[in-house]
Amino acid sequence: MDQLRHDTPWTALDALEAEAIFILREVAAETERAVVLFSGGKDSVCVLRLCEKAFRPQRIPFRLLHVDTGHNFSEVIDFRDRRARELGAELIVAEVEQAITDGLVRPHGPTESRNRAQIPVLLDALERLGAQAAIGGARRDEEKARAKERFFSFRDSFGQWEPRRQRPELWDLYNAGVHPGDQLRIFPLSNWTELDVWRYIRRERLELPSVYFAHERDVVWRDGQWLGVHAPVVVPKPGEETTRLRVRMRTVGDVTCTGCIPSEADDLSGVIAEVAAARTSERSGRADDRVNETSMEDRKREGYF
């Protein structure tokens, strides 16, 4: 008995972790066939660790789903597959490429961002899986339109978010009951900031795709940010010049719009120091969000995560 641990002091990370574990357990109990959206990105890596904490030694009661735009960093895809295997989880990949072939979505051009194209592919996958809930790693601090997002966000059968239809969330008494056809998006990391995520990754010693740490990469300056050269979708246009820089990614999304930032941070402590001192918010590195102030709100209404 003496070897058993007593409670350690209750830190901010403990409080955020406890909130998320509680939510994941409520989702498992109150919804059918929930999936975790797993991209291999840092936020979803945290969500998977929280699932382990919520359900071990049982298996995690959710399947993993990734909507693959086909424009992803190969390191991230390899990592995604490996992590799912390690967890013994079933990973379902819904491919935008396939959806284009099937005529579900129509691309505007070969080098266009496929963020918007993800929406119908995600909705189609959720419908085919019969998933009542999709759990994601989105955080309220990412963007203004998310500041009022609920932990349990209601979407109609078209995946649309209607601010007026959202339910009040009192204490930790979550109501996840939905009608057939309606869906929930669940955001257990709602109250986390970018810095919390990094501190949690350090505390939990979580592995991440290498693109999150400083590395040499050929980049071009486009739309006010550095984009990694990634043939054939990101190649220098006339007038653009390829530069080799030491960079890292703050988010891992579609290669056509995920900016790199010049960085020397090649380990977690380095990244944490950089994030703590950062002078721009995380999504300022994503061209898709900068189109206009309310672009996220618009995409959310359409069913984007």
Binding site: T11, A12, A15, T193, D196, A276
Partner: peptide, 14 residues
Amino acid sequence: APRPTAGLRDDIEL
């Protein structure tokens, strides 16, 4: 003023 390195420590409360 430069942003302080607030939040670097893991033992702060919420």
